[in-house]
Design a protein around this nucleic acid. Structure first.
Lengths: 244, 244
DNA sequence: CCAAAAGTGTTAATGCTACACCCATGG
DNA sequence: CCATGGGTGTAGCATTAACACTTTTGG
């Protein structure tokens, strides 16, 4: 970090969050409707300016909490990448540090902070162009989706979409929704339960649904560290998504 | 990117680069010796402030070129992650966007820009604590190393450490240096040459060394896109590093 | 001819895919 | 007792790891 010849410029820095969840077996993304210019009336990723004395992860979860009206945002938050500062905001050069949240479905209290409408939207509607995003958020969203998809292969973070306890079928539904593929239930079951350090049996089972009750699992201790925290538990060999 | 209640703070933004290369079969990292406070006399990653109107990748390669005295920096440059802005620089809150460069061995012209000594250092000396880095650069370095190691598994970027043309043995030496493991030459050869879309035969061979001459290869067209550019060619199935 | 490095063949172990089959529950 | 989903067994295929062996050069 040596000094440059030129005066160091100072930039406004924002955090934007691509929050993903699975509801009704479909992947959804959290979007706000902008009520002010620029891009008034358009959809955008939730986010906001980093305040003085604040860290990136702090800013990201603060903004999310403010805009969704949730006390503490559940799930796994991680940094994605930074974009800019050149030419991505008509008002001037703004650097944004994008983040990725993988979360269980949680209700958003729409009139969160400053009258910006927040809601979950199906990812498919963004991908097929039916919903358009402001700024360069479409690109950030695409990068986030690719990151999420590849994370499921080699990390236990698929479970970040589930609650504390979940069945193998629920976990499989996550993989199918994120990857957009069908997976063989039997082979998935074997792979998920057979991977050391991934899942832990709770001993309890579901009841009330059709068919045989399913055993409930939770993330194993070592894997649980990586939800919300930077630790790196790894699935080895990876759970590979089918190619083309 | 909605407005916050508070006045948006403005931050100085730097780019830091973890430049890696393989020389003498050992992984090396490019470091500068700081000649000014803070951390005067200590080693640090090359980098500097992002200028007004500049993009992150531009700033990173500009700083690298300035500090090494090289016209155009060779190899593959990609963004790693952002750190800060809180509490990482004693002079105040500075956000840094770290980058990763995988490059063939190139000479650094030491009196590059503003009298900061630049040189390649063995990665092992940083890992074992013999060399200590300023700021939070030790952590950034660790993240970069892990990124480089995993990139070799599923991307063709190992070739970014080689020149235009290279033998399979040279490529294998890269993998061994980065991963710190030995690989079976025969199996590596088969895997490297047998992976579709990875390598392309040039038809030419080496001469003058001991033993049978080796065939020279270059990256296949589709894989070459990902050197220096954001494209994502993928090795599938991955070339896995041995675990523990 | 010998040493050295490049490159090929072969075999056993491992992991994955596909699918037959059994298990446990609700209606 | 049947439909529904949970869960296990197993055969065939692909990939890998280990290593014997052949090829092609320089000395």
């Amino acid at each position: 970090m040596p000094e440059s010849h030129t005066q160091p410029a100072r930039f406004p820095v924002t955090v934007d969050v691509v929050a993903l969840t699975v509801r009704n077996d479909a992947l959804h993304v959290l979007l706000i409707t902008r009520l002010i210019e620029p891009f008034r009336g358009m959809l955008a990723l939730p986010g906001g300016f980093v305040l003085a004395g604040e860290d990136l992860a702090t800013a990201a979860s603060r903004e999310l909490a403010e805009e969704t009206g949730v006390g503490r945002v559940p799930g796994h938050l991680e940094q994605l990448a930074s974009y800019g500062p050149k030419g991505r905001d008509p008002r001037g050069d703004v650097l944004t540090v994008a983040h990725l949240l993988l979360a269980p479905d949680f209700p958003v209290l729409s009139a969160g902070s400053d009258a910006e409408h927040v809601a979950w939207y199906p990812v498919s509607h963004v991908l097929d162009g039916e919903l358009q995003l402001a700024f360069d958020h479409e690109r950030i969203f695409a990068d986030a989706l690719e990151r999420a998809r590849s994370k499921l292969e080699y990390s236990p973070l698929g479970a970040a979409f589930c609650g504390e306890e979940f069945t193998i079928a629920q976990l499989r539904a996550v993989y199918e929704a994120v990857w957009g593929t069908r997976l063989d239930p039997r082979n998935f079951h074997r792979k998920a339960t057979g991977t050391p350090g991934f899942l832990e049996e709770t001993g309890r089972t579901t009841a009330g649904d059709a068919g045989r009750p399913a055993a409930l699992f939770r993330l194993a201790r070592e894997a649980r560290m990586s939800i919300g925290q930077p630790a790196r538990a790894v699935l080895n060999p990876p759970l590979m998504r089918p190619r083309e």
